[in-house]
């Protein structure tokens, strides 16, 4: 059992008590997951849905794991991989069935003058740079967000995206190049 002592608190808690472990997992990674979800989707409400869904799936997955498997788990890339799957599923469904209010939404946000709440929300959503991120192709956006917004090492981005490191690096550099061109 000595081996368990050197585990991080998240995995230790997950082995001791699944629900307490989940609270620990959520407390440790909620900012990371939410920030990623927010910059991938570009919408606050979508980020909440994606984050909730990713953590719920993570819980359901880990409920079926035995001690050995939890001990061997790398919580951060594992959780981020789940998030990326949730996001891809969400994008795929949205392409197939676009939400009916999509057409009306821009009219709303252009017409109304910016109130206090809107200003606060714009600050929360990051303003111009966040808007530009949304214009990147999905693979570049994912690589840039994981590498430079939430600061994962290239090797971990590669694991999460299931791509070779070289491909990740080229997505990142192409994404950054495009962002520089757009901000110029």
């Amino acid at each position: 059992m000595n081996r368990l002592d050197c585990l991080d608190p998240v995995r230790k808690a997950l082995i001791d008590d699944l629900d307490q472990g989940f609270a620990e997992l959520y407390g440790t990674y909620r900012g990371l997951v939410f920030s990623t979800a927010l910059r991938l989707s570009g919408r606050w409400a979508d980020a909440e849905d994606l984050t909730a869904e990713a953590f719920l799936r993570a819980y359901r997955a880990v409920a079926g794991y035995d001690r050995e498997r939890i001990a061997a788990l790398q919580p951060r890339p594992w959780l981020m991989t789940i998030l990326m799957n949730v996001w891809r599923n969400c994008v795929r469904t949205r392409v197939r069935h676009p939400p009916p209010d999509l057409m009306e939404e821009p009219v709303d946000s252009v017409d109304t003058g910016e109130g206090v709440e809107a200003a606060a929300e714009r600050r929360e959503t990051g303003g111009e740079l966040a808007e530009l991120l949304r214009l990147l192709p999905e693979d570049q956006r994912a690589a840039v967000v994981l590498r430079h917004v939430v600061d994962l090492p290239v090797s971990e981005v590669a694991t999460v995206l299931g791509l070779p490191q070289g491909t990740v690096k080229s997505h990142v550099s192409r994404g950054l190049k495009r962002l520089r061109e757009m901000t110029r």
Partner: peptide, 23 residues
């Protein structure tokens, strides 16, 4: 400035989000 701008785009989820997940 681009990299520090990107690094500044992190955000915390709203307080109530955990209650949408856990009972």
């Amino acid at each position: 400035p681009l990299l520090s701008g990107l690094a500044g785009l992190t955000a915390d989820p709203p307080e109530g989000l955990l209650d949408r997940i856990a009972a």
